[in-house]
Nucleic acid binder design. Structure first.
Lengths: 142, 142
DNA sequence: TAATAAAGTTACTCAAGCTAACTGTTACCC
DNA sequence: GGGTAACAGTTAGCTTGAGTAACTTTATTA
């Protein structure tokens, strides 16, 4: 049997880490009637302001129809609304007051979950890992 | 607006990194008529030997019926077969010769993909990150 | 030996991704 | 300036792979 390369181990670890994490996150979000896909858009809009479908889909590396669906659900919930874009084509979205409040409210419990999972990992290690993940993301983009 | 904690950034990064990665992986696996869920089980069996449904589902943090289905598809493909367990209840599985060959064959191209994504990240950084991910996984397990 | 636990399966639901094909709007360029 | 191409978004339909609940079969335990 050929020895496991660190690359192999890296991605295997990533896959088997991600699933239970998303699961835990979903459990937390479901308490507030939210899903992960909605949450990531709330996060984006909260931290980066307005955005179009295309901007979000590029950012997340996901196809447009997926974003359309999720944005529609958030609009229906009254968490986002449309603002005037530079075009009639463009549908530029932002958080509503309700959306911001919900985000901040849910953020608290999600923060707790995330802190739990990062127990025993120093701030420096976290930052280093974020840096590495950013490198990976830009490698994937190509 | 409250500043972003590193924890928040960490997990947001994880979520937005994971999706395109899984996408790339799937594209690669599809060339060999495989899916990610099948691939992770092949990985497990190749590196850890025989396993039961329960072992795999605990390891992956996924429910039993999910594993049942994926194992069934692998069995149908002739990539895994049953070996005698300690029980009549237990259904202990291992890779077949075909399964091992397929794994090794696909491994080569997946290795290339993974190496591409880790471009510019040193072996030491990879190992450090694996260590951190292991810590996170064991934190989640609780 | 009867009740309980364990391993796995079946049936069903759901989230969230994809592609292909479409509408409406804008830009380009001959 | 008009026709074509590009762009933003949507609709329709498919697929993977999660989950839960309820079940069978086998083993354990009280």
């Amino acid at each position: 049997m050929i020895p496991i390369k660190s690359t192999q181990k890296f991605f295997h670890q990533l896959i088997t880490l991600y699933r239970p994490f998303e699961n835990q996150l979903n459990i937390e979000l479901n308490k507030h009637n939210l899903h992960r896909a909605q949450w990531t858009i709330l996060y984006y809009l909260y931290n980066f302001g307005e955005a179009t479908n295309i901007e979000i889909s590029h950012y997340q590396g996901v196809e447009k129809p997926t974003i359309t669906r999720t944005l529609a659900s958030l609009e229906k919930l009254g968490y986002v609304n449309q603002v005037k874009g530079k075009d009639k084509r463009e549908k530029r979205m932002q958080l509503t007051e309700t959306g911001r409040n919900i985000y901040e409210h849910v953020r608290v419990t999600v923060d707790e979950l995330e802190a739990d999972i990062l127990q025993g990992i120093s701030e420096a290690e976290q930052l280093e890992t974020i840096r590495i993940m950013e490198t990976m993301r830009s490698n994937i983009r190509k």
